[in-house]
């Protein structure tokens, strides 16, 4: 049992950074008085004031756009998008402005902003509040992408993101806010851009991130009872992507499954599978298998919702089939 929740670790990262750097400001819907739709920013407006914890109208494009202008003007804005499902509203400011300003302007200036948001299933929130849209971000050069799975990374990855010179999209998982874990606020699991390997085995590699890390770890426990030893890789960031760690373990084990909650087609799992197939072709005993969200919208029904995305059982089943 841990001592901190994912939610509190995120809040501590914001608070610690705001204390250290007066140019860090939070901007978004309900970040102030309400404390954030998922409670992450609770109390920060009392601690830092309404000038630094800025409640906005419901205007997602201009929230991100204001963060772009603020970042270009010397602030370190942390914008909050209540649900990643709203990212389409902001895509011009994110993909055409934040992501391209450094390049278009010949390197004159960067856009050191964070867009904090959350995604994923787990609350019967329906098709417009449950998606995993990280592929949209990963498909846009110029944007960094961080997706913490653990309490430790909720803190350290957010701290690391706030120190980046380029725009970072930081996607939390709504089903993880209440999870608990040990928070050692001195030592991150890994440096920025490096994957973490929380479980080592010799039979296959399961590459994943965000909530699916926990499902992969559950699958690994089950598999161990059947004598199958899996290596689990938590990518932590999808841009940068730590292909070296993936390659090291896939070459050693010869088999790989990639697991993502986002939909299968043209998604993050597809990109990871393609990279592994290219980079590790001569070491592979089996095709790289994608386990990803079904190519369907998410239902409100808990039964349908749960079965729209990978489960520990599905991951274990895939591993068993691969090794049978």
């Amino acid at each position: 049992m841990g001592n901190t929740t994912y939610r509190d670790a995120l809040r501590k990262a914001l608070s610690d950074r705001m204390k250290a750097d007066p140019d860090v400001v939070l901007i978004g819907e309900e970040v102030g008085r309400y404390g954030g739709a998922y409670g992450v920013t609770k109390g920060l407006v009392d601690e830092f004031g309404a000038e630094r914890v800025i409640d906005t109208p419901i205007s997602e494009p201009s929230i991100v756009g204001a963060a772009v202008g603020a970042a270009m003007s010397g602030l370190r804005p942390v914008a909050e998008l209540m649900y990643v499902d709203f990212i389409g509203m902001t895509m011009d400011q994110l993909a055409n402005q934040a992501a391209k300003i450094r390049y278009m302007f010949g390197g004159q200036i960067g856009v050191p902003m964070i867009l904090r948001t959350q995604g994923g299933t787990g609350r019967s929130a329906g098709a417009q509040h449950s998606q995993s849209l990280e592929a949209y971000v990963m498909h846009t050069p110029g944007l960094r992408l961080a997706m913490p799975a653990t309490v430790s990374d909720a803190y350290h990855l957010l701290q690391q993101s706030m120190a980046q010179p380029d725009p970072v999209v930081f996607i939390e998982h709504k089903a993880l806010y209440a999870t608990t874990g040990e928070l050692d606020d001195k030592t991150p699991a890994a440096p920025w851009g490096k994957a973490h390997v929380p479980h080592l085995g010799n039979d296959l590699v399961i590459v994943t991130y965000s909530r699916q890390l926990h499902y992969a770890l559950l699958a690994a426990e089950t598999l161990a009872k059947d004598g199958i030893e899996a290596t689990i890789i938590d990518l932590r960031t999808l841009n940068p992507l730590d292909i070296d760690t993936i390659r090291l373990h896939v070459e050693r084990c010869g088999r790989a499954i990639v697991v993502s909650e986002g939909v299968m087609t043209a998604g993050v799992a597809a990109e990871l599978a393609a990279r592994i197939s290219e980079e590790c072709f001569d070491f592979l005993e089996d095709p790289v298998i994608r386990i990803a969200g079904e190519d369907i919208p998410i239902s409100v029904s808990p039964l349908l919702e749960t079965n729209s995305v990978p489960t520990p059982d599905l991951i274990a089943e895939a591993a068993r089939m691969m090794l049978s």
Partner: peptide, 21 residues
């Protein structure tokens, strides 16, 4: 802070710049 090829794309930047000022 930039010319813009997206109609209206540069407008919210001045909100951020105003906050910074």
């Amino acid at each position: 802070l930039g010319a813009n090829a997206i109609v209206g794309g540069g407008i919210p930047s001045v909100v951020g710049a105003g906050l910074a000022a």
